[in-house]
């Protein structure tokens, strides 16, 4: 049913740390690797080895350059490069769910995960139109809408070792930029991270109330001019003495200028 639940028991989601993400795209690959062979239709590629390859991904990493404003003395601070992973935010007020004409899209009342029942999906694409984040992609081969499932087939999967019971993107991230947890619990890891690091919503004005939060990049230090080798590179003898001193003076006295 495409009516949204008024509240969910848990609010499972991700915290994505824009400070530590290094833009390696490992989450993109592990997501595609897990999800192409588990829940629902595979994530197909078109023309994968040709000139114009495209494919379905549930998680993509953008990179942005952010230019801070000029300082008071007119100097231009260094621009920052920020890698920006983006997948479904499992919104509390998910506009993608209510527009669905068939009831294929739904938000689970037990944990808040937004899913697509692919047997009911007619591939009209309206949910992708309604999503401001580009979280949904219509698979060109299966003709049904694909989206992040928060690895629903991992997080409750008792056949997996306990440390693997988290989304593939979180499990694989080498810089711990992705965290998985329950936002309904104020003492969960994700709630504490959000509170302490000032986690924010994407496009809050769209009114979607996203569950996933993003942590802002920490302020950059301004490093003073610093060189560990400098003391060792001081010239040892400023003015020469003895024979070398006499040679220096004698050579300077010759026509051709003073060195």
């Amino acid at each position: 049913m495409t009516t949204l639940p008024t509240s969910t028991q848990k609010k499972l989601g991700l915290v994505i740390d824009l400070d530590t993400c290094v833009g390696c795209h490992a989450c993109v690959i592990s997501c595609k690797g897990w999800n192409t062979e588990n829940y629902g239709a595979p994530l197909s590629d078109q023309d994968p080895y040709g000139a114009n390859p495209t494919g379905t991904f549930l998680n993509r990493v953008h990179s942005y350059e952010v230019q801070p404003p000029n300082l008071k003395d007119g100097a231009q601070p260094a621009a920052q490069l920020i890698h920006f992973p983006k997948s479904c935010l499992h919104c509390d007020d998910a506009p993608c769910v209510t527009v669905c004409p068939t009831g294929a899209s739904y938000k689970r009342s037990e944990d808040g995960i937004v899913l697509v029942n692919e047997q009911d999906c007619i591939g009209c694409g309206l949910c992708a139109w309604a999503c401001p984040y580009g979280a949904r992609e219509l698979d060109a081969d299966a003709g049904v809408m694909k989206k992040c499932t928060l690895c629903v087939d991992r997080i409750y999967n008792e056949n997996l070792p306990e440390e693997d019971r988290q989304p593939a993107c979180v499990r694989t991230c080498p810089s711990n930029a992705r965290h998985f947890g329950d936002f309904a619990d104020p003492e969960s890891n994700v709630s504490i991270l959000t509170r302490e690091r000032g986690g924010f919503d994407l496009m809050p004005e769209q009114g979607t109330k996203p569950v996933n939060k993003y942590l802002p990049p920490r302020p950059k230090d301004v490093a003073p001019e610093f060189d560990v080798l400098a003391p060792y590179l001081e010239p040892i003898a400023a003015d020469a003495k003895g024979f070398v001193g006499w040679l220096d003076k004698a050579l300077n006295a010759l026509p051709g200028g003073v060195n």
Partner: peptide, 17 residues
Amino acid sequence: TATGLGHIGDVRAFEPP
């Protein structure tokens, strides 16, 4: 607002995914 990075400065798309 899309990136939430506006408080740092002007945002420019540097590399697509």
